[in-house]
């Protein structure tokens, strides 16, 4: 059930059989979530953290005028709110973009895990540090990259993150967003987003249609985006 979390961690460090067993005991109780459902609301008290098993979710914040910024995307194997373990409530909402499956880790179990398994604790800490690194890269995109480079960068990032957990087929992957939601990731209106997608298509770099991203020229896409996977920490090293 939590194999994609193992895949994600094993890229970065060794995971012992005992540590895998502990994670299996900690993350339990599978649940289904329909698409477009807010699963965590800002301010709500938290007593457990959620692991995404299947599907796509996002973190978002919005303004009173209805404008919404998606600040992160979550792929299977990601915790949605491991930061909630120490924060105890969130400053943002979490929503499912597609039908999802999730599992829960009670904070009381996580407390025991942190007391008894220091290396595993550091690995979980690593995942929240990785979330922060991804946030910084999105900040660079939103502040400085052009619209087309921003979209290209997002497609490169998801290609890497989904590849690790076995969700890239050939050069394509499922990306079940509509153009409004993609625009909310990129800080653009859906109409502007559509125009940017046209540019990627015409330059034969990537296409996004019907919830599927097809990468036609990965090197070209990475060059346009100035994508450097270093911020995803894809190296295995003792942590």
């Amino acid at each position: 059930m939590i194999d994609r979390l193992f895949l994600k961690l094993r890229v970065r460090d060794l995971l012992s059989a005992e540590e895998e067993a502990v994670l299996r005991e900690t993350i339990v109780e599978l649940a289904e979530v329909p698409a477009k459902k807010t699963v965590l609301c800002r301010g709500e008290p938290l007593h457990r953290s959620i692991l995404l098993i299947d599907g796509l979710m996002c973190r978002y914040k919005d303004l009173r005028n209805g404008r919404r910024q998606i600040s992160a995307l979550h792929v299977p194997g990601d915790f949605l709110d491991l930061h909630g373990f120490t924060l105890k409530h969130l400053d943002h909402d979490v929503m499912s973009l597609s039908p999802c499956r999730i599992a829960y880790a009670e904070h009381s179990r996580l407390v025991r895990l942190t007391e008894e398994f220091p290396h595993l604790t550091r690995l979980l800490w690593f995942t929240t540090n990785l979330d922060a690194a991804i946030h910084r890269e999105w900040e660079l995109s939103l502040g400085q990259r052009t619209g087309v480079a921003r979209a290209a960068h997002l497609f490169c990032e998801l290609y890497q993150r989904l590849r690790i957990v076995g969700l890239v087929q050939g050069q394509s992957y499922a990306f079940p967003l509509n153009q409004s939601e993609l625009g909310e990731c990129l800080g653009m209106t859906p109409v502007h987003t559509n125009r940017v997608l046209r540019e990627l298509r015409e330059r034969r770099l990537a296409t996004f249609k019907g919830g599927l991203v097809v990468i036609e020229d990965l090197r070209g896409l990475e060059a346009l985006a100035e994508f450097d996977a270093a911020y995803l920490y894809l190296d295995s090293t003792p942590r």
Binding site: M188, T189, V191, H192
Partner: peptide
């Protein structure tokens, strides 16, 4: 409103 917003967004870029 969406159209006006989108024109502003594209032109500003």
């Amino acid at each position: 409103r969406m159209a006006l917003d989108s024109i502003r967004s594209m032109i500003s870029e």
